[in-house]
Deep mutational scan, measured.
Amino acid sequence: QLRFETNGEEQAKKVLEEAKKHNLEAHVTIENGKWVVHVK
């Protein structure tokens, strides 16, 4: 499982879109005010 700390909602959405293009499972959590994308 990969973990990407992003700078906010915009970047998190871009990472999610990329993951979906590659048929990867991804979800976002907010940790300590940071948007974190988890990709399987």
Rank of each mutant, 00 (worst) to 15 (best):
Q1P: 14
Q1F: 15
Q1R: 05
Q1M: 15
Q1N: 14
Q1E: 14
Q1L: 14
Q1V: 15
Q1I: 15
Q1D: 14
Q1H: 14
L2V: 11
L2T: 11
L2P: 02
L2Y: 13
L2I: 13
L2R: 05
L2H: 11
R3K: 09
R3D: 05
R3S: 08
R3G: 04
R3Q: 05
R3P: 03
R3H: 09
F4A: 03
F4P: 02
F4M: 03
F4G: 02
F4H: 04
F4E: 03
F4Q: 03
F4I: 15
F4D: 03
F4R: 00
E5S: 02
E5Y: 08
E5G: 01
E5R: 01
E5P: 06
E5A: 02
E5M: 03
E5I: 09
E5T: 05
E5L: 04
E5Q: 05
T6K: 03
T6A: 12
T6Q: 03
T6L: 14
T6D: 04
T6Y: 14
T6P: 04
T6S: 06
T6W: 04
T6E: 05
N7Y: 12
N7K: 11
N7H: 11
N7R: 10
N7W: 12
N7L: 11
N7I: 11
G8N: 15
G8A: 10
G8E: 13
G8F: 13
G8I: 12
G8C: 10
G8K: 10
G8Q: 11
G8V: 12
G8R: 10
G8Y: 13
G8M: 11
E9S: 07
E9Q: 10
E9L: 11
E9V: 08
E9M: 10
E9K: 08
E9G: 04
E9F: 13
E10M: 09
E10Q: 09
E10N: 08
E10P: 04
E10F: 07
E10K: 07
Q11T: 09
Q11G: 10
Q11L: 07
Q11N: 07
Q11H: 13
Q11E: 15
Q11I: 08
Q11R: 03
A12M: 06
A12C: 06
A12E: 01
A12G: 02
A12K: 01
A12Y: 04
A12L: 07
A12D: 01
A12Q: 01
A12R: 00
A12I: 04
A12P: 00
A12N: 01
K13N: 14
K13E: 09
K13R: 12
K13Q: 13
K13A: 12
K13S: 10
K13H: 12
K13D: 06
K14W: 14
K14T: 09
K14N: 08
K14Q: 13
K14D: 06
K14M: 12
K14P: 03
K14A: 13
K14G: 07
K14F: 11
K14Y: 13
V15D: 02
V15K: 05
V15A: 07
V15Y: 14
V15Q: 06
V15R: 04
V15P: 01
V15M: 14
V15I: 15
L16M: 13
L16W: 08
L16P: 00
L16H: 03
L16I: 13
L16K: 03
L16D: 01
L16T: 04
L16Q: 06
E17R: 10
E17D: 12
E17F: 08
E17N: 11
E17L: 11
E17S: 10
E17W: 08
E18T: 11
E18F: 15
E18I: 14
E18D: 11
E18M: 15
E18L: 15
A19E: 01
A19W: 08
A19P: 00
A19S: 04
A19R: 01
A19T: 04
A19Y: 10
A19K: 03
A19G: 02
A19N: 01
A19I: 12
K20M: 12
K20S: 10
K20V: 11
K20R: 14
K20W: 14
K20P: 01
K20G: 07
K20Q: 12
K20L: 14
K21D: 05
K21L: 12
K21W: 07
K21S: 10
K21V: 07
K21F: 09
K21Y: 08
K21M: 10
H22K: 10
H22I: 05
H22R: 09
H22G: 05
H22Y: 13
H22S: 07
H22W: 13
H22Q: 12
H22F: 10
H22L: 14
H22V: 06
N23A: 09
N23M: 08
N23S: 09
N23H: 13
N23D: 07
N23K: 11
N23P: 01
N23W: 08
N23Y: 09
N23I: 02
L24N: 03
L24G: 03
L24E: 02
L24A: 05
L24W: 13
L24V: 06
L24R: 07
E25I: 14
E25T: 11
E25Y: 10
E25W: 08
E25H: 11
E25M: 11
E25R: 07
E25L: 11
A26M: 03
A26T: 07
A26I: 05
A26H: 03
A26L: 03
A26K: 00
H27Q: 10
H27S: 12
H27G: 03
H27R: 07
H27E: 10
H27N: 08
H27K: 08
H27A: 07
H27F: 15
H27C: 10
V28Y: 06
V28W: 03
V28K: 02
V28E: 01
V28S: 04
V28H: 02
V28N: 00
V28R: 01
V28G: 02
T29A: 09
T29R: 05
T29L: 08
T29I: 11
T29Y: 08
T29W: 06
T29C: 10
T29N: 06
T29K: 07
T29S: 11
I30A: 04
I30Y: 14
I30G: 02
I30F: 14
I30E: 07
I30D: 02
I30L: 11
I30P: 01
I30K: 09
I30M: 12
I30Q: 10
E31L: 05
E31A: 05
E31P: 00
E31N: 04
E31K: 04
E31V: 08
E31R: 04
E31D: 07
E31Y: 03
N32W: 03
N32V: 01
N32Q: 08
N32E: 09
N32K: 06
N32M: 05
N32R: 03
G33P: 00
G33E: 05
G33M: 02
G33S: 04
G33Q: 04
G33F: 01
K34Q: 10
K34F: 09
K34S: 06
K34N: 06
K34L: 12
K34T: 10
K34V: 14
K34I: 14
K34W: 08
K34D: 03
K34H: 10
K34R: 10
K34A: 08
K34Y: 09
K34G: 04
W35K: 01
W35E: 02
W35N: 02
W35Q: 01
W35F: 09
W35P: 02
W35M: 03
W35S: 01
V36E: 02
V36N: 01
V36P: 01
V36A: 01
V36I: 14
V36M: 03
V36G: 01
V36R: 00
V36W: 04
V36L: 03
V37E: 02
V37F: 00
V37L: 01
V37I: 07
V37Y: 00
V37S: 02
V37Q: 00
V37H: 00
V37K: 00
V37P: 01
V37N: 01
H38W: 15
H38L: 13
H38A: 04
H38E: 07
H38N: 10
H38G: 01
H38R: 04
H38D: 05
H38Y: 15
H38F: 13
H38Q: 05
V39Y: 05
V39F: 09
V39P: 00
V39G: 00
V39Q: 00
V39N: 00
V39H: 01
V39D: 03
K40E: 13
K40S: 15
K40G: 14
K40A: 14
K40H: 15
K40D: 13
K40M: 15
K40Q: 14
K40P: 08
K40R: 10
K40F: 15
